[in-house]
Structures are given as C-alpha cells and as structure tokens.
Design a binder for these strands. Structure first.
Length: 878
RNA sequence: GGGCGCGUAGCUCAGCGGAAGAGCACUCGCCUUACAAGCGAGGGGUCGCUGGUUCGAACCCAGCCGUGCCCACCA
C-alpha cells in the first residue's frame, strides 16, 4: 500500500527508476538554474511513472560547509559578533537554526515548481544516517591507505581561513608586474611576488644553462635579510624565461616547494594564515599586498631593482567562495589518494557502464579524471563533518569508525577540522538510500537511473560520486546515465549576474505566468549540454500555449468531446479524423524518442506545433461543422486531447492534470472555471491526498501513450495536406487582393487530388469563409496533373490585376527555377548512377510538383489575362 | 600554454550530406459565437571567410578570422 503517487514501494515488482536530486545548498533559495534542473528531472520521473516504473525522486539538501558558514558568519558580523565570540558549539547550533528556516523555504519552492519528489524520503548531508555513511567510508579509505595526512603546499583562502581543493580555486588573468631583482653581481631574478623573497631559501637555474653553470653550488646573499642562500640547478627552470634564474620560496609556492624537496632546502614561512608578514623586521605586520610595494621600495633604495617594472598578465587563483586571492600555503592536511579511484571512475565511462548525455562532455570528464591530483579534504571550518581521527599524547593517530568508541584518556583529542562538503556529496546516490546498511531502497534503486545536473559541477560532484560510488558499492556505478544541461542565461545569451541585473527569480515567473509556463520555457530551451537562454517574453509565449490548451479543451467539452470508451476503428472514421489520428501516432513516436535522448527542446517543439497547428488551427476548424453531432469525431477529439495532455504532463503537470480530469469527467468541466490556467494548484502538488482505486484518478498515473500503427494513414495525411494547400492558396489570394470578408471568390481545382477534395467542398468553403456569400467552388479532374493539385482563383468583381499578376509571376518564376533545378539533376547521368533511389524519387516528385505549380500559375495567368472580371470565364464557373 | 565548443533570418537557437527551419520581433488584414494571451496572410538569410572532397556541402576535410568555455604548479 503506497502512501501516494510519489512514494515508491521498494518491494514492488515494477522496474525501478530513480533519480537523486542534486542537493541544493541550504543557503539561500532556489534560483532559475534549479528550476531548470528540477523541470528536467521531474519530467523524466513523471514519464517513467506513467510508464509503470517504480519511480523514486529523492529530495534533499547539502550542508554546503564553507558557503553556509560564510552566510551565518556574515549575519553574526551584522550583529556585531563573530563565531569566535560564540565558540564552536554555539556557532554550530546557530547554523542548525539557520538551516531549519532556510531549508523549509526551499521545500516550499519545490512544491511551487511542482516537483513530484518523495517527500517522505528527504535527506540532508548532515543527517545522522548520512554522517554515518561519511564516517564509514572515511574509515574504509583510511584503512585502505587511500586517505593520508601530509604536509603540502595547498590552496589557502586568507579570508575564509581554510584550505581549498584545486577545483575550489578559480583562475583569472590578472594584471601583475614582473620585477627584476639583483641578488648578486651575476644573478638577477624576475618575480611577480617580490614580498615572498623574505622566505627565499635558494636561487635555481637550469642545469644546462651555460650562463650560470659556474655558480651552481655557490651562495649569494639574500637582499634585505643578509641570509646566505645557495644556487641550485633544477630542470624545472626555463632558461628562456626572464633571466633564467629563479628565486625559490618553498613555503609559499608549489613549484618552489618541489625544488626545495629535491635539494633539501629549508622552508621559511614568512606569512601567517591571514596573509600578514611574520618575518621579523620592517615588513612585519604588513598585509601581503602592502608588503609587495614596500619590499620593492626597499630594494629600489638599495639600487637592486634592475629593469623598470613591466606589466605582466598572469593567471591568479581566487577563492571560489569569496573571491579572495588564494595563497599557496604549506600546511598539514588530509588528502584522498585519488589514483586508483580516478582510474575506476574513468573506466566506468570508457567501458560504457555509464553514459554521458551529450556524449561529447565525456571528453572533458576524461581529461579531468585521467589527470587528477590528490584531493585535499580537510577544511579549517566548524560547519561540516568532523574528521573522525583522534590524536594521542604520544603522537598516536587513530581513525574511529562508526559505532566505535574514540580513545579516551589524558591527552587524546579529535582533529579540529571538518571534511570538504563535496566529500559527503560524493556519497549521495547511496548514502541517501541507507548505505552502509543493506536496505530495500538500496537494493531496489541503486544504481540510480540518471543523474541530471549542470556541466558546471561535473568535476566537483559527478566525478567524485563516480569515485566513491564505485569504491563503496563494489564496483557498481552510482548512475547509468549522466544527463548534463547548461546554465540558464538571459535572452541575449548573457550569463545571469546580480551586478548585471538580469537575474530571474523563478518564483516571480511562477507568480506571474504560472509554474507550467516557467517549466515549459526552461524545457523548451534545454538542448543537451547547451546553455538555456530564457526571457520574460518567451515565458509569456509559454503561458499563451497553456492557455491555448485550456481553451481548446473547453471548446471540446462544450461540444461533447470525451475520452471514454474504445476508439472507433479507422474504417469507420472520416478522412479528417483519420488524418489527425495518423498525425498523432507520429507525434507519440517522436516525443518518445526525444525523451530517450533528453532532447527537451524538441519534445516541447513537437508538442507545441502539433497541439497548436494541427489540432487547434486545423482539426478543430475542420470538425466544427460536425463536432456537435458526430459521436465518432467527439470521441476522436477527446482522444487526441487526452493523448496530447498525457504527453505534455511531464513538462507542464498542473494544467494537464486539471484539463485531463475534466476531460475524463472526473471533475467539474473546465468550462465552468476559466481561471488563470497554469497557476492553479492541481492535485499533483501533493498526490498523497489522492487515492488510486478503479482506473487512474489522476493523469499522474495515466498510461504513457504508445503509437498505434493501425491508425497510421498516409492517404489521409496526403489528402488533408492537399486540402490545406488549397485553403491556404485561397486565403492568400484573398489577403493579396485585399478582399473584404463578404467579397466572392471563385476557385477551380484541378489535378488528381482534386477528385477527392471535391468531397471536402463544404469544409473548404467553411475554412475560407465563403459559405455565406455564395462564392463559386469547383473541383474537376480536367487537368490531371500527377501528384498535385492546382488551384485557379478569381474574384467576383473588381480584381487587382497588378497585384495578382505580380504574385503569379513570382510563383511561376519560383516554380520555373525549381523545375530547372530538378531537371538538371535528373539529366545528370552521374547523379542517376550514384544517388540512392529515394533521393532520385524525391527529385522526381519535386519536378512533378514544380510542373503542377507551373500549370496552376499559367492557367491562372491566362484566366487573368482576358478580363478584370472573370465571372464569365466558363472554365472557372464550371 | 593545452583542450573543448560555437559562428544559420533583427534576437535566441534547431537542422549536421540530398528542395534553407522554429519561437519571439516585424508588415498587412481581421473583435469569424474556444481563445485578441487570438485568427489569417506576408517580408526577411550569398548558413563567418577561403580552398578541398563529393553527382550533390549549412552539414565532411584543411587553413584563416571572430567568439565562448574548461583545464594548467609559466617564476
């Protein structure tokens, strides 16, 4: 017994389909990017649910260590206090309070979006269960030697006061100055970071560099300090850069650190964790950026600045959280040895167990996992999972697993640091299902079916889930498919940013246009892997589309359309009915295929045009004469709308639910409540309230359409296509002639198709609105033109000969060109020999069509040639 | 410095080897009893440039120009 439509039963026999939500940060609220991400996931889930899968869409949130801590710290600063005043415990409590209020509003936003998540299985990365998962895998990795502690140069944010992993550093091309400093008579070094010379412990040159070979092994006196430092030879130095001599500061530069290792150089730390100079002397207490010009000035005073300062563009790392320039810093941190994990993560994609959509993005993935550095996982923060390691009085190190008692006694203390927030995110696909316990959920839904996320967190999250998933789950991948989408941008393709003022709040759009319109706009722009431009105008268009569906359904209901009982067999149906059903089968097929390829833009496009053009603009108009009285057409219209609503339901759940219920007679007819469509909160925001008993009580669990080949009817499609051509031709004529609604037009059709069209004369009259003014209409087969229909037109009364002649001349010229092109092709022996048959046939058909068009224009021109009034033309009058 | 991608109608984008497409915007008609948030009819593109492969190229190849993104321990 399931609690509701969104809560799956892990014990059921249905095939599983599971998605875990990329957990949004508890910080702040959902932005338009989340709305895109959720729309895609919800659509996939809803379709599978309709297909009868046991679907799990698991919601949750991420504690987002550094980001959340920063938010709360800012709040405290506003209150004139700080986390240090509060102390660790009180501060963490504060963050939990913040999480409670912020997290609640995120859940509210998800409901507004219409997310069909399983609310009963909501998870948080700092939940007890997930914390246990973190501790478990830490211990396992530690025991396997894949987690280690080491003193390394890491990325350090002097503002956040914590270590960062490589990918938390954003590089930008910044303007710097390359300054050349004379270290001795023979050695000049170039640097952009003059202040770090205070920590120099060597000068390095390339071993093969003739200019310096004789100096290797000697010492120079480091200016401003008087320290003697050696000249060493190291292959890392590029002799062609600058002077070919480089200063070596092992404590403050990763390269220099390695040179220092190779040559046993000491590391002198000359800066504290805030980037303030600690070297005793005149610079002590200066910030690193103040120290730089101060050091340069001091050197200049001694005449040691050689060249003029040179502007220099180079790449500088910034903290991805706060933008502060990152400081490489030597410190003791915990690392994950990524070697074997990354190898497995790459192989799982290489051997096809995990597929990327679009596949091209796997290249970027490989480039990363194949060249991964070890992952620095310790953070000097208070908000997060505390590293489960204890240090003893005699230097013992004990990693404590879940359920184990930490060592007690004098002198034992736990590591102060917490884990990188992505460490727990990496466990998400299985920790949320109960791992390390062997739960029914884990057995049923792991591996999850598809991961939907933006390409921006491919490295942060996707790659790491792969590593930990494969490691923890005995080589089983965390998901089968990675469906990547892009970033939401504005209508000019510009990135959304607060400073630019083009940020869209999804809730604002939901208020104004409805959740469905917002979702449709996002889905319509979502081509796999590509960025998604959106605009208010487009959202208006989506709103209009939802409104169109509303009105069409209302009209259908007013005219007796319904979706109950079996569909009559094709042979009992009119050509028009057979035509729309045939078109429907193609649409069902196409949309289904597009779903398999995650082509949301195309899904939307296909359904938009079918619903609006085929169904509303043509089918509804064509059936108006009979819809009130013909039970077959009432049934067909009901069916077509039913199927369209089902196909659209994954994308726009609200309006489809309401209309579908009305169509099924399960609710009051939509006609009675013409409220704002798309903003109505239909039952699908919380289907747990609904109970499915006899037959689907909601479109949420209505069967997903499948194409029925018995209703595919090429002849009906061709016939209606001809009819459409005639109608369009007459309308164009009227428009070109500037005819008033009451003015008469005579039309004479010819060609084989005209034979069958004769039967549709009343329809054609209705569509061109000639039924009341007695216009003439004739269909003959007197000019049998293969494969086409020719239309000759004239007015009843004054005709603008110039306009009509110009139009016909233009059409004739186009047809002539077309015919010439086709004839040339068919006259080309090589083409006939080498081109595949369908192509040749296509060209032949094109030639025939061009000839028909020529016949039409010629006939019309002849008819036109005689008199301005064609009433007397016997041919036209039949 | 590497890698990836993109340049198609005014804007945003589909199309990726066989007649140049969509949405929005634009022009002209229409209050036609489902819908004016609508209906009907139009205008608008040497598919970045130059070569090459092919019977045939927006689509494949090469070079160039422009543009975006990712990675990177270039002092």
């Amino acid at each position: 017994m399931s609690a509701g439509y969104f809560t799956p039963d892990p014990a059921s026999g249905r095939p599983p389909f599971a998605i875990v939500i990329p957990p949004p940060n508890v910080t702040g609220s959902l932005h338009i990017g989340h709305a895109l991400d959720h729309t895609i996931q919800d659509s996939l889930i809803r379709r599978r649910r309709m297909q009868g899968y046991e679907t799990l869409w698991l919601p949750g949130m991420d504690h987002a260590g550094i980001a959340t801590q920063n938010v709360v710290e800012r709040q405290l600063a506003g209150q004139g206090t700080s986390r240090h005043d509060l102390g660790r415990e009180a501060f963490v409590k504060k963050v939990w309070e913040w999480k409670a209020s912020s997290g609640g509003s995120i859940l509210g936003q998800m409901r507004r979006l219409g997310d069909s998540v399983d609310w009963s299985r909501e998870r948080f990365t700092m939940d007890e269960g997930l914390s246990r998962a973190v501790q478990t895998i830490f211990k396992r990795l530690y025991d396997d030697g894949l987690i280690y502690r080491a003193e390394r140069i890491i990325n350090w944010c002097p503002r956040c006061l914590t270590a960062l992993s490589d990918i938390e550093v954003e590089h930008s091309e910044d303007e710097g100055e390359l300054i050349s400093i004379r270290y001795s008579d023979e050695i000049v070094v170039a640097t952009t970071r003059a202040e770090t010379m205070l920590g120099d412990t060597a000068v390095a040159v390339h071993p093969d560099d003739e200019r310096y070979r004789h100096l290797v092994g000697t010492e120079v006196t480091l200016p401003l300090t008087g320290r003697r430092i050696p000249v060493v030879a190291d292959a890392h130095v590029d002799p062609s850069f600058g002077t070919g001599a480089v200063k070596v500061t092992p404590a403050h530069d990763p390269n220099d650190f390695e040179i220092g290792q190779r040559h046993n150089l000491p590391s002198i730390t000359m800066m504290d964790e805030r980037g303030v100079i600690t070297t005793h002397g005149p610079f002590e207490g200066l910030d690193r950026f103040e120290a730089r010009p101060a050091v340069v000035a001091a050197l200049r005073e001694q005449g040691l600045i050689v060249a003029e300062r040179r502007p220099y563009l180079h790449s500088v790392g910034h903290c991805s959280r706060c933008g502060t320039t990152v400081e490489p810093r030597l410190s003791l941190q915990w690392f994950v040895n990524t070697g074997p994990l990354a190898k497995a993560a790459g192989d799982a994609v290489r051997d096809g167990r995990v597929r990327f959509e679009p596949a091209e993005l796997s290249k970027r993935y490989f480039a990363w996992v194949d060249n991964m550095h070890d992952w620095c996982i310790s953070r000097q923060l208070w908000w997060g999972h505390r590293i489960p390691v204890w240090y003893g009085p005699a230097g013992e190190i004990v990693c404590v697993g879940p359920g184990e008692q930490p060592p007690s006694g004098e002198g034992w203390r736990q590591d102060e640091d917490v884990l990188d927030t992505w460490f727990s995110s990496a466990l998400w696909p299985f920790s949320t299902l109960g791992w390390p316990a062997d739960t029914p959920e884990l057995r049923k839904f792991y591996p999850t079916s598809v991961l939907v996320t933006g390409y921006d967190i491919l490295f942060f999250w996707v790659a790491r889930m792969m590593m930990f998933g494969l490691y923890a789950m005995e080589g089983r991948q965390p998901f089968d498919v990675v469906a990547l989408h892009g970033m939401v941008r504005d209508q000019f393709g510009k990135k959304m940013s607060k400073s630019f003022g083009n940020v869209v709040d999804p809730l604002d759009w939901i208020e104004r246009f409805g959740a469905d319109a917002t979702r449709f706009t996002l889905a319509r722009g979502a081509n796999p892997g590509a960025d998604v431009p959106v605009s208010e105008e487009w959202t208006q268009g989506s709103r209009n589309f939802c409104n169109k569906l509303w009105n069409a359904t209302r009209f259908a209901l007013m005219n007796g359309a319904h979706n109950r009982g079996p569909l009559p067999p094709a042979e009992l149906l009119s050509t028009v009915d057979r035509w729309i059903l045939s078109r429907l089968q193609h649409v069902v097929q196409e949309v289904d295929e597009q779903f398999e390829r995650y082509e949301f833009g195309k899904i939307c496009d296909t359904l938009y045009h079918f619903a609006w053009d085929d169904v509303c603009d043509w089918y509804l108009e064509l059936t108006k004469p009979v819809i009130g009285s013909d039970p077959n057409t009432q049934r067909v219209l009901g069916h077509v709308l039913d199927q369209v609503l089902r196909l659209l339901h994954p994308i726009i759940p609200f309006v489809t639910e309401e209309l579908w219920l009305a169509l099924s007679g399960a609710a009051s007819p939509a006609a009675e409540t013409p409220t704002e469509p798309g903003t109505a909160e239909a039952t699908n925001t919380d289907a747990a309230a609904t109970d499915a008993t006899a037959g689907p009580a909601s479109i949420v669990v209505a069967e997903w359409p499948v194409p029925d080949k018995t209703y595919v009817d090429d002849a009906a499609e061709a016939e209606i296509a001809s009819l459409q051509k005639v109608v369009t031709e007459v309308r164009r004529f009227r428009s070109d002639q500037g005819l008033k609604p009451g003015q008469r037009v005579a039309a004479r059709l010819s060609g084989l198709a005209a034979l069958s069209l004769a039967e549709h004369e009343p329809l054609i009259r209705a569509l061109v609105r000639l039924d009341q003014d007695g216009a003439d209409f004739t269909a003959t087969a007197t000019l049998p033109i293969t494969g086409g229909v020719a239309v000759a037109l004239d007015t009843r009364g004054a005709i603008d000969l110039g306009a009509e002649r110009a139009r016909l001349e233009k059409d004739r010229a186009a047809a002539e060109k077309e015919r010439a092109g086709a004839e040339a092709k068919l006259g080309n022996a090589e083409f006939l020999a080498k081109a595949p048959e369908p192509v040749v046939n296509k060209i032949k058909a094109r030639l025939a069509a061009a000839e028909a068009e020529l016949a039409r224009t010629n006939a019309a021109l002849v008819a036109l040639g005689g008199a301005g009034v064609a009433t007397d033309d016997p041919e036209v009058r039949s």
